[in-house]
Amino acid sequence: MTINGNITVRVACELAAAEGIVREWYLDSARPPKGTWGIGVTNDSGHLVDRYKDKPTSIERVLQIYIWLLRTNYVPAVLAAFKGRVLTEAQLAAALSFQYNTGAIGETAWVSLFLAGKVAEARKFLETHYLNNGDLKQRRLDEAALFFDGKWKHLDGIVNVYPVSKPSYLPGKPVRVDIRADVAAALAAQ
Rank of each mutant, 00 (worst) to 15 (best):
Ala116Arg: 14
Gly117Tyr: 08
Gly117Thr: 09
Val119Ala: 04
Val119Met: 02
Val119His: 08
Ala120Asn: 11
Ala120Leu: 14
Ala120Glu: 13
Ala120Gln: 12
Glu121Val: 01
Ala122Asp: 00
Ala122Leu: 00
Arg123Tyr: 02
Arg123Asn: 02
Lys124Phe: 11
Lys124Leu: 12
Phe125Pro: 00
Phe125Gly: 00
Phe125His: 14
Glu127Cys: 14
Thr128Gly: 10
Thr128Tyr: 05
Thr128Asn: 12
Thr128Ala: 09
Thr128Arg: 05
His129Gln: 13
His129Pro: 02
Leu131Gln: 14
Leu131Cys: 03
Asn132Val: 13
Gly134Pro: 00
Gly134Arg: 01
Gly134Met: 00
Gly134Asn: 00
Gly134Leu: 01
Asp135Ser: 14
Leu136Cys: 01
Lys137Asn: 05
Gln138Arg: 12
Gln138Thr: 11
Gln138Tyr: 05
Gln138Phe: 03
Gln138Pro: 06
Gln138Ser: 12
Arg139Val: 06
Arg139Lys: 09
Arg139Glu: 03
Arg140Asp: 07
Arg140Tyr: 05
Asp142Asn: 15
Asp142His: 13
Asp142Leu: 09
Asp142Lys: 11
Asp142Val: 10
Ala145Arg: 15
Leu146Cys: 09
Leu146Ala: 01
Phe147Asn: 06
Phe148His: 06
Phe148Ala: 04
Asp149Leu: 13
Gly150Asn: 11
Gly150Glu: 08
Trp152Ala: 12
Trp152Asn: 13
Leu155Gly: 15
Leu155Glu: 15
Asp156Arg: 12
Asp156Asn: 15
Asp156Tyr: 06
Asp156Phe: 07
